[in-house]
Design a protein around this nucleic acid. Structure first.
Lengths: 159, 159
DNA sequence: TGCATTTGATGCGATATCGTATCATATAGT
DNA sequence: ACTATATGATACGATATCGCATCAAATGCA
């Protein structure tokens, strides 16, 4: 391997590659512990409703997950069909709805997390998670920046 | 989110959540720059064939990307239909095939990477990528551990 | 060698994802 | 207030992903 000093672009590419692999691995981990037929995005929505807050609109959620609104409609329909979320009319906007997590939804999420704990513990037993905790601020800051870049102009911004 | 000291499991959960969001954001970024109809996994396969080595079997690729082999069959069929990869019989195993990238495939990848560079540069202009570079060893180590905890799956994958 | 088992690839069906079109409601401009 | 435009949600169709079943070729074992 020739070692030229990496350009910032190359560093980002490497970083995104690593993040993509980790996401894929953790996804496999998660889905192996979810009841068959449930997908990570569905769990993620539940998790978001608990972690952040519920009562937001489907479009809010679609934006939060950077996913097309039709995909979110579908995910919410599945969760609703299983009684894990509830959609109520939005008093402030007749076109819109508000998404609430149900008690069953909270239980479901709790159970999923609980089922995951042994796997997480196994990782923590082999790997010092403080190292990950130290990376969190950098990851969160990058996420915020990328979040902010996407909405205003979807086309190439020159500088 | 209580303000007790977080358990290692909670730290991991937070970390995976952050990684998942970042993966989603970078995926959206990337797919916005690919020709319409092409997917990140498809590009990733091309990239892998260039950066690692071509001539591997579909099953090798499926394992490298941690996806079911049927998914890889499909991706390769699409790439083949567009003339970006070529499948030849495997001289060592009559059941198997070997996947090669074509000249058109190399060009395609090169163009995709070039199209992405402005986005990466825009991020690098706003965010000190050294912070990300510092996190890379921790991420790579975790990835290796998680790789090892699952089935026998070999090489690291590329973007 | 002959036969059972394993392994690589793919067909098929079910679900997920996503783009486009559509409909209802909200907002803006006059 | 009236109309044009913008926005939130969804129906619909196309493609992607994935599990299961099938087929062919390789391997193991007697």
């Amino acid at each position: 391997m020739p070692d030229h000093p990496p350009t910032p672009e190359a560093t980002l590419l490497t970083f995104f590659t690593e993040v993509g692999i980790l996401a894929q691995l953790s996804r496999a981990l998660f889905e192996a512990r979810l009841p068959p037929g449930f997908t990570l995005p569905q769990f993620s929505v539940l998790n978001h409703l608990v972690r952040v807050r519920d009562g937001r609109t489907p479009l809010d959620l679609a934006r939060a997950f950077q996913v097309p609104k039709t995909s979110m409609t579908h995910s919410l329909a599945v969760l609703g069909r299983h009684g894990l979320v509830e959609m109520r009319p939005n008093a402030r906007d007749g076109r819109s709805k508000c998404v609430f997590i149900t008690a069953a939804g909270r239980d479901f999420r709790q159970a999923a997390v609980a089922g995951l704990v042994p796997d997480l513990a196994a990782i923590a037993a082999t790997y010092p998670v403080e190292r990950l905790a130290e990376t969190l601020p950098a990851l969160a800051d990058l996420r915020k920046i990328m979040d902010g870049m996407r909405d205003p102009s979807p086309d190439p911004q020159e500088f």
